[in-house]
Design a protein around this nucleic acid. Structure first.
Lengths: 218, 218
DNA sequence: CCAAAAGTGTTATGCTTACACCCATGC
DNA sequence: GCATGGGTGTAAGCATAACACTTTTGG
């Protein structure tokens, strides 16, 4: 086999698609670019992979640095490596997607960006703001989330530890962008046996209080 | 943002998990390593990504160089990048999986390997032969193929243009490693509307000839 | 007592599974 | 005529989808 050193090497980054539910909408964390290229445009948080750092570790580190969270759901999405996707040179980006709940939505000021904000994923203007090929990455991430929520329990990752079934249903409706039947939904999630009914309710105004549930990991 | 040149760069390779059906079994193409590290062990075909070459192009080029085929099913799988996965240095590998049919099973002598052969995926000895983290990559590829065959039409990619329904059924049985009901299977694939019945049969011995079908792309 | 969200069961429909016998051919 | 794989339909079980009213609270 040829030697490892015989070839010019690309740069490798991780880019993060960090989703959360806020304002009754699915949002993604974007960071305003201060410098060229794409100055003033918005980009997915991300950064270079350290030479002795695993991809997963790099993604978790960026999550900590740019969103201020640790220990949340993180999954590798896809690797984007077309030549020309970054005008500064050959940069291959391993994209990850992360899910954070409402309680963790503080954003940490980033060292290499001037601003950070949550943008609606379904607002058509969001795609137009994006630098590099980040629109493509975001679209792929949304596609994956939509599929995944149908046959896994990732939906729970977008809610705090205690939640009501109506809140969980709303997460599904927002992500799938269609109404979900209340009785069928409750039958399904209770039948899956992945939630525990708590002896607590949340009283949320002038109506019947909702029972709280928590997710069982594993 | 930090400059592209400020960071030491890893090497980036593509590794290919090339599946085919042969001898009533699911096989993967492996290449015997001539030099260190892992001399004498078997490895997935792969190689470095050219500095101006897309990942997909690199994978297709390796497919041509090592298996002698072009224009076949190719899909990005996952990116493996743990430090230490290659003793020669930091090497990040973007794994692809490819499916080739029986008619294309010629193997081209490779420039950087002494030997190439098809190995059974389900034979436990195959995993033990493998260099680097290729066992993990192979296991992941098998898992993906198994899932994918249930809800897509990738199965057709493992058969020549004309095939019988029994042959297609056998592909499913081999990949899923369980028997499949003949009548239900035929109902399902015909109902999907993705195959065309041909006015041809194949006479294959002392029994009723089987009708041939072809796959409709799109 | 009114408004607002929580909670709760039954029926119809479609999909998946199980299952057994006749057909066309070569020898 | 016998051995071999090719070809075909129906009924049962299961999961999904549709659908409306009562409950609990705050004001």
């Amino acid at each position: 086999m040829n030697e490892v050193n015989d070839y010019p090497r690309p740069s490798v980054t991780v880019d993060l698609v960090i989703f959360t539910i806020a304002e009754d909408d699915l949002k993604v964390l974007l960071i305003r670019r201060g410098g060229e290229p794409f100055a003033g445009k918005w980009a997915l948080p991300g950064g270079f992979v350290g030479i002795d750092e695993s991809l997963e570790t790099a993604a978790a580190r960026e999550l900590q640095e740019e969103a201020g969270v640790t220990n949340i759901y993180l999954e590798q999405l896809y690797t984007f490596g077309d030549p020309g996707r970054d005008p500064r040179g050959r940069v291959i980006s391993v994209a990850y997607f992360a899910l954070i709940d409402a309680e963790q939505q503080r954003i940490v000021a980033s060292t290499d960006a001037t601003d950070a904000a949550w943008y609606s994923v379904f607002d058509r203007r969001t795609g137009a703001k994006l630098a590099f090929d980040h629109r493509k990455i975001l679209e792929y991430a949304v596609w994956r989330l939509r599929n995944k929520i149908e046959w896994t329990t990732v939906g729970y990752e977008l809610l705090p530890k205690k939640f009501t079934l109506s809140e969980l249903q709303r997460v599904y409706e927002i992500i799938l962008q269609r109404p979900v039947d209340k009785r069928n939904f409750r039958k399904k999630v209770i039948g899956q046996g992945r939630i525990r009914e708590l002896n607590e309710t949340r009283n949320d105004g002038a109506h019947r209080p909702a029972r709280l549930y928590s997710f069982r990991k594993g």
